[in-house]
Simulated scan of single mutants.
Amino acid sequence: MSEEKLELRIITYMCPTHPVQLYELIMELLEKSLKCYTSLQYESRTPGPFKDRPDPFTSNKVDLGFMTAGSYMRLRKAGNKSIELLPVTPVFTHQMNVDNEPGYFSDVIIHSDKKAHNVNTLLDLRGCTFAYSDEESLSGSKIILKTLKEKGENASFFGSTLRSGSHLASAQMVLSKQAEWAAVDSTTLLYSKKYMQDGGKDIILLETLGRLPPYPIVVNTSLKDEVKKSITKALLTLPQTQEWKKRFAKFGITKFDSNTDGSYDGPAAQMWAVQNEKINIRYY
C-alpha cells in the first residue's frame, strides 16, 4: 500500500485582483517541494472570509490562504485563533518599488480624456465619479479617505461613488468611462492592463499612493509546524532558482521575502483606523 500523501487545501480571495494562474503556479511549486497534493478554492466575492458565514479556517476546511491585508487585519483585530501569519510574502515589481521590498501601492487612475480637462493631481478630481473595489480595501478606498483627510478634504469630495466589487472591475469602469477615476491595487494594472481593450492605453496613472503593507499568507493554526516551515522554505527559496524565477516573473513577482505581524502595525494600523469612515458619508 502506497504512503498516504499530505493534501494542502488552499483558498485564495485575491482573484481577480491577481490572476488565478498565479495561485495555480504556487500550487505546483508546493506540490513539487513538499511532495504533496494540493487543491484550490477560488472565492472572488470577498477579499477575505465572509463576515456572516462560518470561517473556513475555524471549521478546518482550509489549510493555507491568500487574502488582502485589510481582511487579515480585520481577523487579527477580532482575535481569530484559527489563523497565523506565515513569515513570507510575494514582492511585486512597480516603478515606485526601487528597493524591491515587500508591500504594494495604490495607483490612482483616470481615462486619458481627463488629461484634456486639466486633471493633473488627485485634488483636480473633485466632484468626479469614483470607482472602488470595496469598503475594506486599503488600496481601493481607505488610503483615498486617509489621503483626502490629510489634505483637508472629506467625503463630499466625491461627486458620486460606484462599488465595483474588484480592482479589475474598477479599472474596467474607468476604461469604459462608467467612472472618471479609481484607486486600484498596483498589481492589478501590472498584469491585467495588457489584456484590456487596446492594451489599456487609455488608462492613465495619475498618482501612486503608499507603500501599503505586504500581502499576507496565512495558515491554519492546526497545521503541523513542520509543514508550515516547509511551505515557508519552499516559497523563500524555490522562486529564486532560474526555472521558477522566470515563471513567477510573468506575474510581476521578483521574489518572496520575509514578513512579520509588525508590518500591519504603525502606519498600517493608522490607516485601518479609518475603517469606520464611509466613502459616501462626510467625515472630519
Rank of each mutant, 00 (worst) to 15 (best):
L236C: 09
T221W: 03
R74F: 05
T237L: 11
C36I: 09
H111S: 14
N60S: 12
A179W: 04
K201P: 09
G48H: 05
F158I: 11
H111G: 11
K229M: 07
T38P: 04
L29T: 10
K77S: 10
T93W: 02
F50H: 07
K151Y: 08
P87M: 03
D185R: 00
G65N: 06
L85Q: 05
S39I: 12
I110K: 08
T208G: 09
D198R: 12
P267M: 06
K146C: 06
Y23C: 10
N60G: 07
K246D: 15
F157N: 01
V227A: 02
A179T: 13
G165C: 03
R163C: 11
R247H: 08
D265E: 13
E4C: 08
N276G: 12
K194D: 07
V274D: 08
Q41A: 12
S137K: 05
H94D: 14
K233A: 15
G140Q: 09
I203G: 08
T68D: 03
S186N: 12
K193W: 03
L236N: 09
L212F: 07
Y23F: 15
S59F: 11
I203H: 08
D52S: 11
L125I: 04
L235C: 11
K51W: 03
V219S: 12
S170N: 00
D107C: 07
Y264I: 06
M73Y: 05
L148S: 03
F50K: 04
M27H: 13
S39E: 03
F130N: 05
P213M: 07
S230Q: 13
R211G: 10
Y215W: 03
N60V: 09
L223H: 02
V219E: 09
S33W: 01
V184R: 01
E101C: 05
I253S: 03
T121V: 07
Y104Q: 07
